[in-house]
Amino acid sequence: MSLSDEARERLADIVTLQPTKNKELQDRWGMESGSEVHQYLESELSDYYYRDDDSLIRATAEGVDLVDVEPSVPPEEEGGIPDRIRVPELHVQVLDVLAGPEERSESVVSVLGKLREEFGIDPDVEAVRDALGSLRRKNVVEVEYRTVPTFRLAAERSSFDVETIES
């Protein structure tokens, strides 16, 4: 199966963002719905992606080999705290302000307030929630359920490196 330039770029997005969800790809690719993402994956990239046990989208080994990007979480790191992750700038900023592993976990709104104060940015609440979810899937953030879900780092900031990817 020969891939178009667009399909190759989108496969690179999957490799870079994995493990990911339809919503992340929908936002990245400017699509209208998760259904449109699913349809694209099935029609253009069916041989190069799969859904793991948690229904998260990942590239196959062959898919990773086809593109010249590094996975956001190296395959050997899956399940534990990774040595390195590759994430968009908002994710990096969230990691910078998020409560540490020994601190009290905090809500999405609390993280949003810290982002406004620390970086002078005003991202959408959903963007912050999505960033926290993505970081959780990469095993560097953990969730604690109280009245609302709250978040904190799963490990000390110094235990993993963070590389910013282009949005």
Rank of each mutant, 00 (worst) to 15 (best):
S2T: 10
S2K: 12
L3Q: 02
A7T: 07
R8K: 13
R8N: 08
R8W: 09
E9N: 15
A12S: 11
A12M: 06
D13H: 13
I14H: 10
Q18S: 07
Q18R: 03
P19I: 11
T20Y: 01
T20S: 10
K21C: 10
K21N: 10
N22G: 05
N22K: 01
E24A: 09
R28F: 04
R28P: 00
G30L: 02
G30M: 04
G30Q: 00
G30Y: 05
M31R: 02
E32L: 13
S33E: 06
S35F: 02
S35Y: 08
E36N: 09
E36M: 06
V37P: 01
V37K: 08
Q39G: 00
Y40R: 02
Y40A: 00
L41S: 01
S43R: 12
E44M: 00
E44H: 01
Y49T: 02
Y50L: 04
R51P: 00
S55G: 02
S55L: 12
I57E: 03
I57Q: 06
R58T: 07
A59E: 04
T60I: 08
A61F: 11
A61S: 13
E62F: 05
E62Y: 05
G63T: 07
G63H: 03
D65S: 15
L66W: 01
L66M: 12
V69W: 07
E70M: 13
V73Y: 05
P75Y: 06
E77H: 11
E77I: 02
E78A: 07
E78Q: 08
D83A: 15
D83M: 07
R84N: 14
R84F: 14
R84E: 15
I85K: 01
P88Q: 13
L90E: 06
H91N: 13
V92Q: 13
L95Q: 06
A99M: 06
G100H: 06
G100N: 09
E102V: 04
E103S: 11
E103Q: 07
E103V: 01
R104M: 04
S105G: 10
E106F: 03
E106D: 00
S107W: 09
S107D: 03
V109M: 09
V109H: 01
S110W: 11
V111F: 04
G113A: 04
E117S: 14
E118A: 05
E118C: 02
E118H: 11
I121D: 07
A127C: 09
G133R: 02
G133P: 04
S134V: 06
R136V: 05
K138G: 12
V140I: 12
E142C: 12
V143A: 13
R146D: 14
T147Q: 11
T147R: 09
T147H: 10
T150D: 06
T150P: 02
F151G: 06
R152V: 07
R152W: 09
E156Y: 13
S158I: 03
S159Q: 14
S159K: 06
F160I: 03
F160R: 00
I165C: 14
I165Y: 15
